[in-house]
Nucleic acid binder design. Structure first.
Lengths: 243, 243
DNA sequence: CACCGGGGTTGACCTGCATCAAGGCGCGTT
DNA sequence: AACGCGCCTTGATGCAGGTCAACCCCGGTG
């Protein structure tokens, strides 16, 4: 996350704590003051668990900076990431006290947290908030469905290319070469894609060898030709993935 | 769908057109009359396309009887089912005119359809409706995440067992042997599970051979021991899949 | 009756990814 | 410097599931 992004996030935070992003047109003054009253900030370091699977989740929150992951696991230890939270994404569902999945900080992460009971009261009181939350949920459903296509039908190479494209898109600075900091370890990438670490690694080197991407260090990702990357991703060049 | 189910569905329909299911506690008289005014019914036959991928979708709807599927496809023809709609499920997102995926009738299917502009007006007017829709969306997100775990990490045998368990659960009559009519062809099952037809077929015969399930005809599914089936599914015996 | 066509099953073979194992690189610690 | 530890890469090998092809079953139709 660049200094500019941080500034934008905090700027927006004054405007609309739920989205932590550009002003919400429908924000109303009384909602904002009530939200202000119940919010608090907290930071986790990369790798720390924010909520354990099945544990009570006494808050709802939105991501201010950094990156967190939602993960479901099976008894024998197999794991699948089921949510990737970047700045402005929202965690926690009203009306459910327990988290059905583990929430982990992928990078250092700062959340803007809302006391759950107070937040639920706000929801029932003010239609605007629940409508905005509805919209965000619908976006999330679309993202999840795109993700299912990836998990169910794409090859390893397409999967990796798709993920890299998603990251580049979210971090887009505008002018080529596109440049982004990978917020995920190889392990997290594998978990996202339904692959193993080794396969992810092999596909990354293959994409490098074929000139589709370049790396500067382990985390620095550059791409001269997003079109080529999207072609590798098997998407029809739109890929409205991940809300 | 049995005659009893049908009766329940129509019964509930008078009560709450959105869910087409047990009475919604929060239904209010004026909402109901407005919903009544904008709704209409239509039936499709098994195999018919209800909405094409990318086409305009001039309505929102809820499933009254039968079964429909949402499918995303790639340019080269690979397809992945991303939604399975059973009675009481809802299709169509307010605020988006075009369907991002294909909707197909898996069995003969009857929808209760709402004119989209009118429905959107109702949404902004009455908070209850959007709150109920929010709840349903959140359930759908949870189901999608469970589904991702299946697509990303489960073996073919586990996938098939999981799907059969889901169907049995939704059709549950209570007493063993559990009995259900499979609403899906092998092709649709394969599409749901991210497998090929052949693999689904092989796993089905394997599960039969191992005494986990029995079939009466191609569509009739019986199970004497749901616990055994769930064990094969790799779930920790809860599996709150598919809302 | 023969014919056809659509859905399902089964077998033989192949391949893409997982698995297992070794080694490299960067970094903090003694 | 030497060591250990995370994280990543690379190679060798195996297997689950895809692919291709044949065949079955069943209901509809001329």
């Amino acid at each position: 996350m660049t200094a500019l992004d941080l500034q934008i996030a905090t700027e927006a935070c004054r405007q609309c704590p739920i989205r932590h992003r550009a002003v919400c047109a429908t924000c109303e003054p009384d909602e904002l003051t009530r939200l202000e009253a119940m919010k608090s900030y907290r930071t986790w370091m990369a790798g720390q668990t924010i909520v354990m699977e099945g544990e009570p989740m006494p808050f709802a929150a939105s991501v201010v900076t950094g990156c967190a992951t939602l993960t479901r696991s099976m008894e024998d230890g197999r794991m699948q990431m089921v949510g990737l939270l970047l700045p402005s994404d929202f965690i926690g569902r009203p009306g459910r006290a327990n988290a059905p999945y583990e929430v982990v900080a992928a990078t250092d992460v700062t959340l803007c947290m809302f006391d759950r009971p107070a937040f639920e009261r706000l929801l029932t009181d003010t239609p605007h908030v629940s409508q905005r939350l509805l919209e965000m949920s619908l976006d999330e459903i679309d993202a999840a469905r795109e993700w299912m296509l990836l998990l169910g039908r794409k090859t390893a190479r397409e999967k990796v290319a798709t993920l890299l494209a998603i990251v580049l898109r979210r971090a887009a600075t505008g002018s080529a070469p596109l440049r982004a900091e990978l917020p995920l370890t190889r392990e997290a990438m594998a978990s996202y894609l339904g692959l193993t670490i080794e396969t992810v690694s092999r596909q990354m080197t293959a994409l490098k060898k074929d000139g589709v991407i370049r790396m500067s260090g382990l985390r620095g990702l550059l791409c001269d030709d997003l079109g080529a990357l999207l072609a590798e991703a098997g998407d029809d060049a739109d890929g409205d993935v991940l809300s």
